[in-house]
């Protein structure tokens, strides 16, 4: 126990740095995947068949294969197969590659939730907008969008909490997120080696962060309760 108390400050500092990278990946993924998901949702609902087919095939592939494989392919494929290592070899390159994989993967999941949300808004809402002389984009932004958001908050909360923990998959391309930081003390880092407790300790970070998100998303759900 005493040993752990001595190691604690060093470990916490390392884990904090790793967790910062985890948070960065989390927010970049959200910022990219939330809007991109909408674009993909519109693609899959397109009345122009080739577009909707193509989009649905892409969504099928992305949702049908492990994110870990996608990370490996996106990170290694350009360098090892094409001989053009576009991501570079440093931490920033790994971060960009991981962001691309996460944004694309999550956008595909979000798109299906969006599609469900949009299609669950009664068609009468659009028709009411049309007969009132509104344009289709006015109808989407002024009428449909908020009703869709209200409907998708619970399933989106689920995905967002999953994302918090999925960021750990970026460990596979050695992104220095919190799992990587915890594992370092197993192999040996800053005079500490053979210690597994830092790795176990990382769970607490995820737990606290997803707790905070649960509360915030619950607040959003409540806020949208003013209408039905």
């Amino acid at each position: 126990m005493e040993v752990i108390m001595e190691q604690m400050p060093i470990v916490i500092r390392s884990l904090n740095i790793g967790f910062l990278q985890t948070l960065k990946l989390f927010f970049v993924t959200l910022a990219g995947a939330l809007p991109l998901g909408l674009v993909i949702a519109f693609g899959s609902m397109s009345r122009f068949r080739p577009v909707s087919w193509l989009t649905r095939i892409v969504v099928w592939i992305v949702r049908g294969t492990p994110l870990m494989i996608q990370l490996l392919i996106i990170y290694y494929f350009p360098g090892l197969v094409l001989g053009n290592p576009i991501w570079g070899s440093g931490e920033s390159g790994r971060f960009v590659a991981a962001s691309v994989a996460f944004v694309f993967n999550y956008a595909c999941y979000f798109s299906e939730i969006y599609r469900g949300g949009i299609q669950s808004v009664p068609v009468g809402q659009e028709e009411a907008g049309l007969v009132l002389g509104m344009t289709r984009s006015q109808i989407f932004f002024k009428v449909t969008l908020l009703q869709m958001i209200k409907r998708i908050v619970p399933p989106m909360s689920n995905e967002i909490i999953t994302l918090v923990k999925d960021t750990s998959l970026a460990r596979i391309i050695a992104l220095q997120e919190i799992i990587w930081a915890g594992q370092a003390f197993l192999k040996g880092s800053q005079g500490i080696s053979g210690e597994i407790w830092p790795l176990f300790f990382t769970a607490l970070y995820y737990l606290v962060f997803s707790g905070v998100l649960t509360v915030l998303l619950g607040k959003l759900e409540q806020k949208l309760n003013y209408f039905r």
């Binding site: 009664p122 009468g124 809402q125 028709e127 009411a128 049309l130 007969v131 002389g133 509104m134 344009t135 289709r136 009428v143 908020l146 009703q147 209200k150 003013y226 209408f227 039905r228």
Partner: peptide, 24 residues
């Protein structure tokens, strides 16, 4: 064009059986 149809629609108003008010 969509915009022309939109103008023409304004000659008419329509009240639906299911109201279709905007809930928000």
């Amino acid at each position: 064009q969509e915009a022309q149809i939109r103008r023409k629609r304004l000659h008419f108003g329509l009240v639906f059986q299911s109201f279709n008010l905007f809930p928000q």
